Amino acid sequence: MSLLGPVEIRALAESLGVRPTKKLGQNFVHDPNTVRRIVATADLAPDDVVLEVGPGLGSLTLALLPACAAVVAVEIDPVLAARLPATVEDRAPELADRLTVVCDDAMKVSTLPLAPTALVANLPYNVAVPVVLHLLAVVPTLRRVLVMVQAEVADRMAAGPGGRVYGVPSVKIAWYASARRVATVPRAVFWPVPNVDSALVLLERREQPDADRDAVFAVIDAAFAQRRKTLRAALAGWAGSAAAAEAALVAAGVDPGARGEQLAVGDFVRIAQHAHTRR
């Protein structure tokens, strides 16, 4: 099987009349070594079913197919979605039956034809975190996630409490999984070349807290809406008053004078639970 290089990527795009668009966040990977590295880092098992979001012209798809049982590729662009099976048939005919293409917006997908166990994708920068959070919520069979995102986004996804970039994405990701940045990806492997660096971030699902997710996420959103405020002040609107917020914080064992960036996901869970019991 031959992977797609720069010449093949441009020729394929030209044949389809495809021009990468900023609206869809399209930056196609054209370096075979990069996609091999992504697949190796994903550490897939032969029985894994991989969910790929935004397969584009098929660079990563071709590298994934030999490493797993099946790939479910979700592509929002109908032209690219229609072409992907033919690209696989041309370059890896013996693996073509492992590919299922879903032409849809990954942010709106609620059911899939198979039960993916891993998400491996080069995600559009502008929707990376919402897509990951949505898929972790609606695809409970996902055990592992390896996504290529803007380096700054990778840092936010993997950040721990107390860090400068720790925020809403960090805590909400932590609800579902442990996260760590595992590699940097140079700009030159993309077409067109982006003006930011990229990185791979690895998420491994863990048992979710025994709590109402929506209630906990509401606390998280309120706590970070005005980062400079203490939790007593930041949660006043959410709790109904500053006094009610302070009571919930004290009951949860959290300092009312602390700020959201100092709390781990478990702290937010306790705050939500105590607020719930007090209402």
Rank of each mutant, 00 (worst) to 15 (best):
T184V: 13
T61I: 09
V120K: 02
A218P: 07
V219A: 11
N33H: 05
L62A: 05
A154G: 05
D221C: 06
A70F: 10
R259D: 09
V127A: 04
A128D: 06
L57Y: 02
T100H: 11
V139K: 00
P209M: 04
V53Q: 05
A233T: 08
V49M: 06
A11F: 13
Y176P: 00
G58Y: 01
G160R: 07
L200V: 04
L95P: 08
N27P: 12
A245N: 12
A183R: 14
R10Y: 12
P55S: 01
P194K: 08
G17S: 12
D267G: 10
P113C: 02
R213G: 12
T100V: 07
G56N: 04
A225S: 11
T21V: 13
V79D: 13
G5C: 12
T87D: 12
A236V: 02
F217E: 09
L114D: 06
L235G: 05
K23W: 13
P161F: 04
A236F: 09
P32N: 11
V53D: 04
A225W: 00
V120M: 01
P124T: 01
P6S: 03
V201M: 06
E94T: 12
A215N: 12
L62S: 01
V138H: 14
K229F: 05
G237I: 02
M107Y: 06
P140H: 07
V79Y: 14
P186A: 12
A223K: 04
A42D: 12
L203Q: 12
T100P: 10
A11C: 14
V131H: 11
R187D: 09
V7A: 13
E75A: 07
A63F: 00
P20W: 01
A218V: 09
V101Y: 05
T184H: 12
A211S: 10
A73W: 00
L249N: 06
I271E: 04
A86Q: 15
G17D: 10
I220C: 03
R36V: 15
Q150E: 07
F217A: 01
G260T: 03
Q226R: 03
V250T: 15
G58P: 06
R228G: 15
A13Y: 00
V7I: 15
T87N: 11
A11H: 09
W191M: 02
A11V: 12
P85C: 09
D43C: 08
K229C: 05
L24P: 08
V39M: 02
E14C: 13
A13R: 03
V79R: 15
E75T: 08
W191F: 10
A234W: 01
G162V: 11
A45K: 07
R19P: 09
A13L: 09
T100C: 14
A275P: 11
D47V: 15
